[in-house]
């Protein structure tokens, strides 16, 4: 029971790292980026390729799993995404679905359609018993890394100049611009960091979530749930939503293997219908 809770938390944390970039994209530019998962996939493949082809140790691949998707994100944002902010949501959806299709096919072409397996270092394998609970070492590692990231993100958002500008821009881009804040630069940086985090999440999650070319499509819905249920006005909302989703998903698959995903989708619809601004959004 507690083991499931523990696994659920690890899963939820992972989801948060994967999806928090999307929350910012949506909150800041009101951009529906269905291609977010493609950046996560990029990170996963960076790690898989470096480890399996070049023998780079797992930990050493993680920075690159962040940096490479971040650079891809930055380039795409500056060249393509930036043209679409003023367009309708339909256009944004079409555009990002197009990107997903391209990413899926391209990765399939380059890497093959099989699952990518990564060999975790031995010190991250296995389980230990802590206070009578069976705890997976790798999941503990994920929780630790993600916790550090969450705390760091929260600190950046609340304590730094960049963070306050970002929050101002999310609150009201027009007013922020009027105050002399360079919203588009902030957005480019945030987009890159969000993509990088997704990449890092993809690398960390390759072992748990699996990694194959359909990754962006398979997990798109999960990211969207996190963002829509959590709201986009803070990172606490998506964080809580991620944890709930993670725990519910793990528990659901364990206790009610037949209906797990079904319940999650239904709950999502209900939340959307009754709280369109997100479960934790402050009222407007």
């Amino acid at each position: 029971m507690l083991t499931i809770l523990f696994d659920g938390i690890a899963y939820g944390m992972l989801l948060f790292v994967l999806a928090c970039g999307l929350a910012v994209t949506l909150g800041l530019m009101n951009f529906v980026n269905l291609a977010h998962g493609a950046f996560a996939m990029a990170g996963g493949y960076v790690t898989a390729v470096l480890m399996n082809r070049f023998g780079v140790p797992f930990l050493a691949t993680l920075p690159l799993a962040f940096i490479i998707p971040a650079i891809i994100g930055l380039v795409l944002e500056r060249t393509l995404y930036v043209r679409l902010y003023a367009q309708s949501h339909l256009d944004q959806v079409l555009f990002s679905i197009g990107l997903v299709f391209m990413a899926v096919a391209a990765v399939d072409y380059a890497m093959g359609s099989q699952q990518q397996l990564i060999q975790l270092p031995s010190w991250l394998q296995g389980r230990v018993e802590v206070l009578g609970i069976q705890v997976g070492l790798y999941r503990s590692f994920i929780i630790a890394v993600c916790s550090v990231l969450v705390v760091a993100l929260q600190l950046i958002l609340t304590q730094t100049r960049f963070g306050s500008r970002l929050r101002a821009a999310v609150d009201d881009p027009r007013v922020a611009r009027g105050l002399g804040i360079n919203v588009s630069a902030i957005f480019a940086v945030t987009f890159a960091v969000g993509s990088g985090l997704a990449g890092l999440g993809g690398a960390l999650g390759a072992e748990i979530l699996g990694l194959d070319p359909t990754f962006p499509l398979k997990f798109m819905i999960y990211f969207l749930i996190v963002v829509t249920v959590g709201g986009t006005t803070s990172i606490t909302g998506p964080f809580v939503a991620s944890l709930l989703l993670g725990i519910a998903d793990v528990a659901g698959k364990y206790y009610l293997p037949g209906v797990g995903a079904f319940i999650i989708y239904t709950l999502m619809i209900l939340v959307l219908v009754f709280r369109p601004q997100g479960l934790f959004a402050r009222g407007r």
Binding site: L99, M102, A105
Partner: peptide, 19 residues
């Protein structure tokens, strides 16, 4: 197998060109 790539490309171009 990879025709989805081209479909994706068409979508992206279509949107960028002004649907």
């Amino acid at each position: 197998q990879y025709w989805q790539f081209w479909i994706g490309l068409i979508l992206v171009l279509l949107v960028l060109a002004g649907r």
